[in-house]
Structure formats: C-alpha cells, structure tokens
Amino acid sequence: MAHVEDLTAEAFGQDPYPTYARLRAEGPVHRVRTADGETWLVVGHDTARAALADPRLAKDFRSLAPGMDYSPVTSNMLEADPPRHTRLRRLVAREFTSRRVAALLPRVQQITDDLLDAALGHDTVDLVEALALPLPMTVICELLGVPDLDRDAFRRWSNDIISGTAAAGEVALGAMSEYLTELIEDKRCGGPRDDLLSALIRTRYEDGDQLSPDELVGMAFLLLAAGHETTVNLIANGVLALLRHPGQLAALRADPALIDGAVEEMLRYDGPAETTTWRFAKEPITLAGTAIRRGESVLVALAAADRDPERFAEPDTFDIRRSGQGHIAFGHGIHYCLGAPLARLEARVAIPALLDRAPGLALVPGPISWRPSVVLRGPARLMVSFSKRP
C-alpha cells in the first residue's frame, strides 16, 4: 500500500512548509490524512493550476450523492459547478462590483483608525482580536446589512464551522441557516435598504432570473464567512511575516508605496488559505501521473504551490520587492475568490496604518498557536507590544 502522509500532527499545523517542500520534491500529488479523513493533495504549482481549472473535479458534493440532505447555507457558488455556478456568480457579480468595493475605502480607513485608537491604549494586545478580526467583520457585516448585536454570534458560528468539531460545525450550520433565513425575510418585508444583501434579494438578470430563498441563504453565508475569514488571516499572517523579517519591515516603513507589492508577497509567502475546499472526481482521472478514482476527494495546497521553486526563485524568502505576482493565494479558474479586491483593500489600509501608528511594534516572545484547520491558515492569537506609542 502506498504511503499516506499524516497531516494531523501539531508540528505540521505550526509550520507545514517543510513537509510541503519534501512532498513537492517527491511529486506533485500525494495521498494524505487530514482530520476529516484521507484525500489526495496537490502540492506543485503547475499541477495546482491545472487541477483548479479541471472541470472533471467537481465542487458540488451532491452531484455524487443525489437525494442527500443538505443545509441551505451550502447552496452557494463555492459548492456549485457549471452551469449553476455560472448562474450564481453572474447574479452576485451584478451587485458585488469593483465600484461598490472601492467606495468602501473611507469607511475601512475610519474603522481601522477607531480600532487602533483603542488598541494603542494598551501596552500589549492580541492583534487578531484588536484589528485583524474586527476590521473585516465590521466591514462585511455593514456591507451586507447584518445588525451589530448579531456579529458576535456569527463569529462563533463561523469559527465552529471552519475550525470546530464535526458536531459543533453541524450545530453552527443549522443556527446560521436559521438566522440568515430570518434576516433575509426581515429585509424582504422591510422595504428598500441600501445594503448588499437587500440588493441581492432584489436583483434580477435580463431573463428575470433571480436567487431562490435557499440560494440567498447560501450566498449570504459565503459572503459573510469568506468576506472576513480571508482578511483576518491575511492581516495577521502579513504582520507576522514583517515582524519576523526586520529588514523587510524597515523597507516598508521607509517607503509606504511598497504596500501593494508587500501585500502580494504576504499572500504568496504565507497566504490566508492553506488549501482550497474539497473537490471530487466526477470520473476516473489522471492528475500528473496519479490515478484518482471517481468520487475520491482532492485538496489543492495553495500554500505549497506558492512556494514551488519551479515557479518562484528562492520561494522561502520573504521579499516585498519580489517582481511579478503569479501566486494562487485566491485560487484560479472559475472559483477565483470574488472577494479578493475587498481583502486586498483592507490589508492595504490596515497594515500601513498599524505601522504608522505603532513605530515600536514588536512580537511578544512566546509560541504562536495556529488555528486547527487544513483549509485556513492563521494564528489563533498574535500577541504584540507597542514599546513606543505616539
């Protein structure tokens, strides 16, 4: 029997990159064991891009199990294939536009400033709780029109779904589905409102097509979860990379115009999504010489692909002046992250503001615990100190 790499060890969660490097050197596709069971894992950059664009790898698990019960929150485009995915993305793209995202800049700056005002009143803070989490959570909830008082509950549900036990995740899915169904009904009956969820309720395509009730729940869930989880990790991982590389931090402080390239390097070097969500072979396929049977699952390790030496020179070096992009931190193909512009906007505002307001920013000595998820990569807490405050 072929070797199955165990990815459940705590050491792997702390630093998966040595394991990914070893696996990549042996080949681009491997059989691995995660907390959710065995799966195929793609670690090479070229094979990852090919897998992400391969229509034989389905995202909709229901296509392999017709009649299976499912929660309305799974009726979203991340778990759909063409032509349904095409239809759902077309409808949401009508409202979640680049213009709507760009218009958020002043509000993102205001929220960032308010959070830093509060954080800088303390000698030591958890940067996740002080900035990296509340910024994107506030932005996406305001964008969608989720009431302030409901945001703490949503955060707990999201954490249980992504990082909790299977039982806790199932309970959270049910609670979130019930909450979103009630929220959508409230917006539907409450008259016109200027938020994205209300716009999605109203939107119709030229042929009269619109989102069904379950699809509205699924889309709201996807936008809320993906709309903050990715940015939490982008900001936390990015600041951590800077603090661990003083020369790069000094370069960015000296020339804030480097921020766009710095964010791209943060995404490549230690991006917010370690792997994609699961794909399933609709038929027997061969991927980079590896035979995968119908129904078997596949994970694409974005983190491994973005440190492939065949694609990036000195891939384990953090260099904010690295030329070119080419990373796949936000995916590739039809499932490329719709919220990537919003995540980039928030990071480009939050990180320079933090560096400007906290000239003495430093890591608090001690181990860093990482969230227990093979899909998302980010510290559960990131303790920092402000040794000098303005």
Rank of each mutant, 00 (worst) to 15 (best):
L7M: 04
T19G: 10
P28D: 03
T34R: 04
G37N: 05
A50Y: 07
A51F: 03
L52D: 06
A65K: 12
A80V: 04
R84L: 13
E95Y: 01
R99E: 08
P106D: 11
R107E: 04
L115K: 01
L116H: 07
D126T: 09
A132I: 04
L133N: 13
P136Q: 04
P136C: 05
M137Y: 04
V139A: 00
L144K: 09
G145Y: 07
R151L: 07
F154S: 01
G174T: 11
E178R: 14
L180K: 10
I184F: 09
C189K: 09
F221T: 03
L224R: 05
E229Q: 06
E229I: 01
T230K: 02
T231L: 00
T231N: 00
A241D: 08
H245C: 14
Q248H: 11
A251M: 11
A262T: 02
E265G: 01
T277S: 15
T277V: 15
R279H: 15
R279T: 09
A281N: 11
I292W: 08
R293C: 13
V298Q: 03
A305S: 12
P309N: 10
F312K: 02
P315S: 02
D316G: 12
H327K: 08
I328V: 15
G331Q: 03
H335Y: 04
L342H: 08
R348T: 04
P359V: 01
P365I: 04
R371I: 10
P372H: 15
P372K: 14
